[in-house]
Design a protein around this nucleic acid. Structure first.
Lengths: 151, 151
DNA sequence: TTTTTATTTAGAATAGTTCTTGATAGCGTC
DNA sequence: GACGCTATCAAGAACTATTCTAAATAAAAA
């Protein structure tokens, strides 16, 4: 018997996580998850929809939204936001922030520095319980800055 | 001659800032700005609309949106976001993050700790220029946690 | 198999925000 | 002060991301 590939092991553990929450690991959910795993450029729901359509031509956008919500609820992917722009989705589960380039619209993961998470050091409201936090940076990425210089 | 009140000095410097950008300090902009100064509970555009209507009954929601955008562009107020919820507006120009209570919907300012801004310590993309950042926490505030305990 | 329940689809509905158009108001100049 | 110019405003239509609804389908349970 051949050893399990990384993709297969991902799929299996994803299946387990989803099942534990009482959901089914349907073809649609699998393809949405796979799309996010495969191309980690923080696609919007519509981006995911277009990618998954190649594998499942009959899928609907509403289903993609449903799958993304389910996967998010299961903690298998994350929704990331910037201003009121469309939600984007991220399969990176490590603690990290995001950088949004205001020129090209690219979104990059921003890992914390070596000194650990930079989310400490805030005077949070007395007695508050934090369940979630989101850190986003906006600016120009190096590529766009270079392009600007030229023109 | 009486000394200038704090409110008057605010209005004057606001006028100057707006003029510098080539905008006029109209009655609508003044009232929108005043509303945000007066009640710092991070109101939505509709909240601001309802408050300003008491002073300017004829104002339209679109105008409130326009004023908020202009004031934001002038750096006199800040738009704050959480997930894809309606934008909220904040007259606090000091560096700070925000805490959103997922029970009662309240939004609180979160000042940085004594060790200064906690936005350092991130491995930002090489060569990127940061023009803006937003840090938001979500959870339960002390009041809501207490209420939960009781029931 | 039959029943039950979750899921999907397609399209309608929703909500926050922006856009469009015509009216209004303030400013500089004569 | 009258005139023309431009910014601003009001009202409502339009837009867009997302959610909801209802009927169809598919998977699991009995």
């Amino acid at each position: 018997m051949l050893p399990e590939s990384q993709a297969e092991s991902h799929a299996r553990s994803c299946n387990e996580t989803i099942s534990q929450k009482g959901f089914r690991f349907t073809a649609q959910r699998r393809e949405v998850f796979d799309a996010l795993q495969a191309q980690r450029d923080h696609p919007t729901a519509v981006d995911v929809f277009m990618r998954v359509q190649k594998k499942l031509p009959g899928i609907s956008l509403a289903t993609v939204y449903n799958c993304l919500e389910t996967l998010t609820e299961c903690g298998l992917v994350r929704a990331v936001h910037h201003d009121r722009q469309p939600s984007r989705y991220c399969a990176n589960l490590e603690p990290h922030a995001h950088f949004f380039c205001e020129e090209c619209g690219a979104v990059h993961d921003v890992p914390p520095g070596d000194d650990g998470l930079a989310t400490a050091g805030w005077q949070l409201p007395q007695g508050a319980t934090i369940t979630h936090h989101e850190i986003s940076f906006r600016g120009q990425c190096a590529e766009c800055a270079a392009q600007r210089q030229k023109s």
